Simulated scan of single mutants.
Amino acid sequence: MLALICDDLAEDRRVLAEYCDRYGKEKKLKIQTLQYENAGALLQNKDVLKADILFLDIYMEGASGIDAAKILRGKGYKGTLIFTTTSREHYAEGFDLAAAHYLIKPISWEAFCKAAGRCNKITELEKKSIRVNIGRSELNVDVEGIRYIEVYGHKTIINTLRGEISVTQSLAALEQVLPRDSFLKCYRCFLINMNHVQRIEGDSFLMKDNREIPISRDNRVQIKSRYLDYMFSKMEEEKC
């Protein structure tokens, strides 16, 4: 999970980063945090649209948190937005921007946990299915039932437990809406659901339908490491 923290006060950024780390350890979640001291620096990051959670201070020098949120939503940001503030006067605007929560400063651990817990529920609901385009029509696809997605020629094909679906979205577009913890781009034209992998065989993933999917040579070590980390985390969760 990727959490971005944008606040012009270093102490407030530090507190939120510590809370994210503590929450991740308690909930057995891997939370990576990145910090920004103003909206301009945040908006310059090309990966901002991939963030799962964005903690955004409303009152900052230069562009406000509300301004930054409007720009990001306009660019298609679908992640969970949490405003941090010293005042409730922007509640209405936050509602328009689909903000999940407000955290009033100084932020307590209890308030943070309440916000984070609410965001987990929102994320779970959003990730049960994705909406895909099939020609001129649309279809909801169960995320857990997706084995892998491949680009073949000029087609993007989703392989599911119920069969194959040819969609008009690009692989990159689908990657942005699927859960980042369980889906892995292992090759330039393949995105796999790690829950449907049998094992690693040499330089390929053997899927549960016996399809062998290659692992990119350039990032082979990192890809294998991420898969093993994911499987280890699943085993640890099953013990609890």
Rank of each mutant, 00 (worst) to 15 (best):
S87Q: 01
K30Y: 09
G65D: 07
Y102I: 04
L81H: 10
L34K: 15
Q32R: 15
R88E: 12
T84H: 04
K78P: 12
L72Q: 00
D52Y: 09
G74Y: 11
F95M: 13
F55T: 09
G76D: 13
L42I: 03
R88M: 11
T86S: 08
Y59W: 02
R88S: 09
D67H: 06
L42C: 05
E110C: 02
K78D: 13
E37R: 07
K30T: 07
A98K: 04
L56W: 02
C113F: 00
I71G: 02
G76R: 07
K50C: 03
A98Y: 10
G74R: 07
H90I: 06
W109Y: 00
A41S: 12
G94Y: 02
M60D: 05
E61D: 11
K50Y: 11
A100M: 08
F83E: 14
A41I: 12
S87P: 00
P106V: 11
N45D: 15
T86G: 04
L56E: 07
S108E: 01
D96L: 04
F55D: 04
Q44L: 11
Q44V: 06
F55Y: 08
K114V: 11
A99I: 01
D57T: 00
T85M: 08
L49H: 01
F95Q: 11
I104K: 07
D52F: 05
K30S: 07
A41Y: 13
T85L: 10
H90P: 02
R73A: 09
T33L: 05
L34D: 12
F95V: 13
L42G: 05
L103Y: 00
T86V: 03
L43K: 00
H101K: 09
T86M: 04
I71E: 08
A68K: 04
Q44R: 11
G76Y: 08
A68Y: 05
G40A: 14
E37P: 11
L81D: 13
L81R: 07
K75T: 09
K75I: 12
G94T: 03
E93P: 01
A116K: 04
D52K: 10
D47P: 09
N38P: 15
Y36E: 14
N38I: 11
Y77D: 14
A41N: 12
T80G: 06
I58V: 07
G62H: 12
A68N: 09
Q32W: 03
G40H: 13
D47A: 13
R73Y: 03
T86H: 02
Q32I: 11
I71W: 07
F83V: 04
A100S: 06
N45A: 15
K50P: 04
I66D: 11
E110W: 05
A111D: 15
K75C: 13
R88I: 08
Q44D: 10
E93R: 01
A100N: 01
A41M: 12
T84R: 06
F95K: 14
L81Q: 12
Q44F: 07
L42R: 02
T85N: 10
G74H: 09
K75F: 12
Y77S: 15
K114R: 14
K75Q: 15
A111R: 03
A51E: 03
G79D: 15
L56N: 10
L72F: 00
T86A: 08
Y91K: 13
A99F: 00
I31P: 03
G76N: 13
Q35I: 15
E110H: 05
P106G: 13
D52W: 08
E37Y: 02
Y36N: 14
G62Y: 08
D67Y: 05
Y36T: 14
A98V: 06
L72D: 05
